[in-house]
């Protein structure tokens, strides 16, 4: 994919740096530091320009960009900028999750019980999967799929970076989970390949990054949170807590979304990705919460607070994504969405 279009001064200057070189580095640095210093609490989660800039930097560590030299990934200018932008992002995630983390820590049980209790009791945001099952129009479903493509087309990849940071049973079970995400070694069954099929069946573009220019801030922030957690060793507990909460809120919503895809006429091939996740994630939630997070906390490798921060961050960002989508659907009639560029 090519670098996404700029969404503000920060992403504009970053684009220029990655494409042209270092002429405006001082201006980029000053812009980033100024933005980070003056950003009100929580607003980092909703700042398109900051989130897109972080997304571009993280993507250098995944599949890169056709128009950017791969050496930028480890260039000091980019690493420094990443650190500056990560600080307000991480702080916003902590501010948005503190009360949930505290309530989960008060649950009498082990960290798996706490993750499951948090996932069951979390009540922010609208229930998107119920809306998709019962009410969403075909155009709204396609809008949802375009936003989800930002993560689902690289599903599981961030967590692979965590494997070498774990040891013993937690590592074995993360590999076991990832092996399933990657289709059990069968080409064509990787979960992100199943999602590509869903996109094609919905007459959408399955090219990596095709809809990045349409991605809203919460969608970018959700993807960025996984990169933040999974690319920092100190956040490995949050990475695995995020994974556990993601899996623990997947089986039942996926069943509803699969039903919604069938109801709106996209067919069984389109629904297969969601159908697969009903059973897969009923396994994965147990692996992630009990055998990965449970082991990590029991052995003292990470704290329950680390795990629950990541779990709560997953749920908060998911709620922000759902809120943003539903708000756009309330503002825009289905007919307008149909006319919007795909």
């Amino acid at each position: 994919m090519l670098l996404p279009r700029a969404r503000g001064p920060l992403s504009g200057l970053l684009r220029h740096l990655l494409l042209e070189g270092t002429e405006e580095l001082a201006e980029l640095d000053a812009t980033a530091r100024g933005r980070a210093a003056t950003m009100p609490a929580l607003s980092a989660l909703d700042d398109e320009d900051l989130q897109l800039s972080l997304w571009m930097i993280y993507e250098l560590s995944f599949r890169g960009f056709d128009d950017v030299d791969d050496r930028w990934e480890s260039a000091p200018e980019v690493a420094g900028l990443r650190a500056v932008l990560e600080r307000p992002f991480e702080q916003a995630l902590r501010d948005a999750t503190t009360s949930w983390t505290e309530r989960a820590l008060a649950v009498d049980g082990d960290v798996a019980d706490q993750v499951f209790a948090l996932a069951a009791g979390f009540d922010e945001g609208p229930d998107l999967s119920k809306f998709i099952r019962k009410e969403a129009t075909p155009d709204q479903v396609r809008h949802f799929l375009r936003q989800r493509s930002v993560y689902h087309l690289k599903e599981a990849d961030p967590h692979t970076f965590v494997i070498p940071r774990l040891t013993g049973p937690a590592k074995a079970h993360l590999v076991e989970l990832q092996y399933d995400e990657y289709g059990g070694g069968r080409s064509g069954f990787l979960h992100h390949e199943l999602f590509a099929t869903t996109l094609r069946q919905a007459a959408l573009d399955d090219t990596w990054g095709a809809y990045i220019d349409d991605a809203d801030a919460p969608t970018l922030a959700s993807s960025n949170a996984m990169s933040l957690f999974c690319l920092h060793r100190r956040l490995r507990g949050a990475a695995m807590g995020h994974l556990a909460a993601f899996e623990a809120t997947s089986s039942i919503p996926c069943r509803r979304i699969a039903a919604g895809l069938l109801r709106t006429g996209f067919g069984e091939d389109a629904a297969r990705y969601y159908d697969e996740h009903v059973e897969a994630d009923a396994v994965h939630e147990q692996l992630a919460a009990r055998e990965i997070c449970g082991t990590l906390v029991r052995t003292g490798d990470v704290t329950a607070r680390d795990v629950l921060f990541g779990a709560a961050a997953c749920l908060v960002l998911d709620a922000l994504q759902a809120t943003a989508l539903m708000a756009q659907w309330e503002d825009t009639g289905a007919s307008d969405l149909a006319e919007a560029p795909l």
């Binding site: 009360s99 309530r103 989960a104 008060a106 649950v107 009498d108 049980g109 019980d113 706490q114 499951f116 209790a117 948090l118 069951a120 009791g121 623990a248 997947s250 089986s251 039942i252 069943r255 009903v278 059973e279 994630d281 009923a282 396994v283 939630e285």
Partner: peptide, 25 residues
């Protein structure tokens, strides 16, 4: 479960004797 013999997560919908819940706000 709706996917017998496999688990589909339905056990979580109705809670259960061992399900833990968050303390109230």
């Amino acid at each position: 479960t709706g996917r017998a013999p496999w688990c589909d997560g339905t056990h979580k919908l109705a809670g259960g004797p061992t399900a833990k819940t968050l303390p109230t706000r």
